[in-house]
Amino acid sequence: MSSLQALQQRLLQAVLADKTPKLPELRGDALADPATRLDVYRHGYRIRLRDALAIEFPGLRLMAGRRFGHLLDSYVEAHPSAHYNIRWHGAGLAAFLEFSRLWRDKPALAEMARLDWAISSAFDAADEPVISATDLAGVPAEAWAGLCLVPQSHLQILPVTCNVDTFRRAADQAAPRPHLRRYPRPRHLLVWRQELTVRYRVLSEDERPLLNAALREESFTSLCELLAEYHDPNQAMPRMTTLLRHWLEAGLISAYRLESTHDS
């Protein structure tokens, strides 16, 4: 190991340490001793990460309230940053809240962090094409059975047990903190970007399995069969048409492909 490498490793550990250690490599003078000088970096590291995370997690900030600072500090202490983009340190926050002994008895916090991060990720996800009803109008009737929709690849479906979307909306509108409400049964939130605007909404009970099947690029026939489990035969096809129209209008579908339905 070179002496430069050894010096940088000791300095890094000094910045990350709980308390300011003594580093004989650093000079002090009448203006400030080495510990005071080192503390500028120690303080800066924590503040910088805390500020960056606060921007990425507005819903969590609102939900955690006065605990938010402590929550971020506990994460930063447990997980040094590894990515060059400071924003990306937020990628592990939801998992930390879910499993950390400090926070795991408050599962709403992890759910909230997961929604905030999904919104943040969708914000600058790769641009993809969007197809419209006009594009599908050109598909021959006999080919629809083998039609596979290709959803936007940034699209995320998040299971939630409480009203995290209400918290995020309130945070974005600088509205007062809502009451935390637990759902009797889990719901699912869809997060996606329509052109440049990130959107999220609760998925209906029949829409979630259908969208999951579309994400697996299952055929239109499979999608219709799935929907038939939720509706009687007379209602399934009109419902399918409605959902498909909503997906296309919301910019959820980036392409389609046609599978051959003939047996070889």
């Binding site: 070179s2 002496s3 430069l4 490498q5 010096l7 940088q8 490793q9 300095l11 890094l12 910045v15 990350l16 490599e25 970096y41 800066g44 590291y45 910088r48 990460l49 960056a52 040094p80 940053s81 590894a82 990515h83 060059y84 400071i86």
Partner: peptide
């Protein structure tokens, strides 16, 4: 400057020692 080592990023502009070794690096 350097911003991290050992795969950890301090997100700060850390100064170098002004040595021949650092210069060569």
């Amino acid at each position: 400057c350097w911003t991290g080592v050992q795969g950890i990023n301090l997100h700060d502009l850390m100064p170098l020692p002004y040595t021949e070794e650092a210069l060569a690096h």
